[in-house]
Design a protein around this nucleic acid. Sequence first.
DNA 1: ACCTGAACACCGTTCAAGT
DNA 2: ACCTGAACACCGTTCAAGT
Lengths: 209, 209
Amino acid sequence: MARPKTPRLNRAMIVDAALELVSSSKGLTMPGLADKLGVSVSSVYHHVRNRTELVELIRGRIAGREFGDLDRNGPWRTVLATWLREYRSAFSPYPDLVRLLIGQTISAPEVLEQYEYIAGVIIAAGFPREEALPVIMVLDSFALGSALDLSAPDEIWAANPTEHAHLTTAIAAAPAEVVARADAAFEYGLRCLLDGLAFRLGETPTATT
Amino acid sequence: MARPKTPRLNRAMIVDAALELVSSSKGLTMPGLADKLGVSVSSVYHHVRNRTELVELIRGRIAGREFGDLDRNGPWRTVLATWLREYRSAFSPYPDLVRLLIGQTISAPEVLEQYEYIAGVIIAAGFPREEALPVIMVLDSFALGSALDLSAPDEIWAANPTEHAHLTTAIAAAPAEVVARADAAFEYGLRCLLDGLAFRLGETPTATT
DNA sequence: ACCTGAACACCGTTCAAGT
DNA sequence: ACCTGAACACCGTTCAAGT
């Protein structure tokens, strides 16, 4: 074989295949990826410097999608709520992706654009300059933590009804299925967080998200 | 050598050594751990079923510490704030520990006890049963996400002053050092979250944390 | 430039062998 | 029970060799 006249691999294809592997039973491995693409491992390395770079490409792909649908007008609460929802839901088809991305420093340029936009929204909303970064970081922490819940097992805590009475009550009163439970918690936290932020701005936290 | 009359290894020693390795340059590996303990790899496996179990033991150790200092009296805001602060600060000596723990399902019993206690506080505070789990999950997501910030690089975003004007402004107005920056964001988010929760309870969110 | 096969260092885990 | 040395399967990465 060796060098075919028309390349049989490109970065887009590689990222596609990698994304499919991330949440598969075997996870993302270079041999597994090569296999799925029908090439040899070393061939993949001709298009991607290393595994780290591959993960950054995946991050860019995900971030790009998310950013596309963002509505730039409207009140800050709505914009931030939309962004956070899309941020998180971008991960739902790939439950294990969050953990993969968390393990690694951000360098994808698409992500920078997003934060730039969000920073603008926050400043325009009236938050003082020193609070802008904290606000971003808090939203980020919350979205990331919430996205992690998507890949949690159905039974997060093996609570014992007699030893853990309160916890058992709490669990029984919430949806049993992971995604439904995570969704509910996310929406609940979103409202709390936005209410808290509105309160800091001196606004009445009654507005709808 | 073979079986010495007095064992030269036990679980506590192993967890100690493992904790030291987690945030070291080489990270936590079984060969590295054996090396640090001065024994062979297979020897470690005699005390710990596998790497997964080892990580669970580490989780238990950390959770145990944290829970010890919890003040059980006082208003719910204070109790939750204290818990969240200790939760997060338990990770600060081991910046990379969060990522290690996140990769794995919780099974350490010490952690269950904690959530049981927190569930009790939340219910006693007056939150309806259906909101108890969401509240716990939201606090959890936030604390976890915030703990992740502790291991972030000094320069999280390589923001370009001309292309990312708002982001640059935000970054310039915040502490430059990782830990100081993460601390500020955490305290800010903590207040927002508790304010938002107080608002849901019908309380005036003016109380000090 | 773009692909292959073979190789290397490293990791998690197991197992027969010793006391 | 508790330790060792050797082995296995697997992973990320490199490199000379081919067109």
